[in-house]
């Protein structure tokens, strides 16, 4: 389950204040440990599909359909923003050595909210593989892998994003994260 701290009234106010001021927030120790371990086990059983177009991307992903976890996040953002947000997409991503996604002239973020749920147990951040959000050719947010964290950010149609090429320091580790997009 989600760490109870994040349902405190003052915590919700702080989270909203930070999102409104800075556009994003990363919440650490988001799930209690037992629940987080169970999610990792559940996720490890999901078969991912390879997406490969050398000039655009190279990774594994799949549409995420687990109703328990999806409902949990739908509920969390409803409590956070005081209204129901529409879930536009839910995807599970996996990046390992040599994987990447590039900025694409034809693809922008949408006006909405993105929730990145980090499901990576072990990751050397020197191997990169971070999410980078770019606006007017400037990086506005970098999401590094932090175990059991959730990053919430406001996105806009002027924004683009990519996942930085994963270098050989990743060894055999995989960066796995869920991405919920709300409008």
């Amino acid at each position: 389950m989600i760490n109870k701290t994040y349902f405190d009234k003052s915590a919700i106010e702080d989270i909203l204040f930070t999102i409104n001021k800075y556009g994003s927030i990363q919440l650490h120790s988001f799930f209690n440990e037992e629940f987080y371990s169970n999610i990792l086990i559940k996720i490890s059983k999901i078969k991912l599909k390879k997406f490969y177009n050398p000039c655009l991307f190279f990774y594994r992903a799949i549409d995420f359909s687990d109703s328990e976890i999806t409902s949990m996040f739908n509920n969390f953002v409803r409590i956070l923003f005081g209204r129901k947000l529409i879930l536009k997409s839910a995807k599970l991503f996996c990046f390992s050595h040599k994987d990447y996604s590039l900025l694409n002239d034809k693809i922008n973020e949408i006006d909405g909210l993105k929730v990145i749920v980090e499901l990576t147990d072990k990751w050397n951040n020197l191997s990169n593989g971070y999410n980078s959000f770019v606006q007017r050719n400037q990086e506005v947010l970098r999401v590094n892998s932090v175990r059991n964290s959730v990053t919430i950010l406001r996105t806009s149609k002027n924004m683009k994003s990519f996942v930085k090429y994963v270098n050989h320091l990743a060894l055999n580790d995989k960066r796995i994260f869920l991405e919920f997009v709300y409008v």
Binding site: P54, C55, Y100, L102, Y165, N167, H168, L169
Partner: peptide
């Protein structure tokens, strides 16, 4: 070490 240039035309 770790440097690269990804595919492009």
């Amino acid at each position: 070490s770790k440097d690269y240039l990804l595919p492009h035309d």
